[in-house]
């Protein structure tokens, strides 16, 4: 249900039902059951500029929290993306590989990168919530 006055890219909380948690390096994860969906934040996509390529992880790959899981390329710069939680990659957003600009247009919805089966669900709670992430972004911006 897209509110035309509040497009999702500007007011993402209007259309995202699940709570997101963030890392200090600007990845986000939202958890449904024991599966976390992972992407990069609106702040991160702005800092990167136009994304031209997304390197997805292989399904089945075991990742540790903080280890490199994907990469995005913008204006000749490839940036490593780190797993916000430990677990196994169960799905990669193949559509995103074909439409890398979704990272910019819709970082919290169409721009999701992969899904990770959490091996330690308690990790999710240790990540920054919406408010503390906002503070983190503001702190680094002042």
């Amino acid at each position: 249900m897209t509110n035309l006055l509040c497009p999702p890219s500007t007011y993402p909380h209007h259309s995202v039902p699940l709570a997101r948690r963030y890392t200090k390096e600007h990845e986000w994860v939202s958890v449904d059951g024991a599966v976390g969906t992972v992407g990069i934040s609106d702040y991160a996509q702005q800092a990167l500029g136009d994304v031209v390529f997304v390197e997805l992880p292989e399904v089945g790959k075991e990742v540790e929290k903080g280890s490199q899981v994907a990469a995005v390329e913008s204006v000749k710069a490839a940036s490593d993306i780190y797993a916000p939680v430990t677990g196994k990659v169960v799905e990669a957003n193949e559509e995103l590989a074909k439409n890398p600009t979704w990272i910019n247009e819709s970082p919290y919805e169409k721009g999701w990168i992969c899904k990770i089966q959490l091996s330690n669900p308690a990790e999710f709670e240790t990540l920054l919530n919406e408010e503390s992430y906002k503070v983190h972004v503001e702190e680094s911006a002042h």
């Binding site: 702005q46 800092a47 990167l48 500029g49 204006v75 710069a77 972004v137 680094s140 911006a141 002042h142």
Partner: peptide, 12 residues
Amino acid sequence: RKMGRLPVRCYV
């Protein structure tokens, strides 16, 4: 510092 960090696109 005000920019928080040098965004990648600015570095390029």
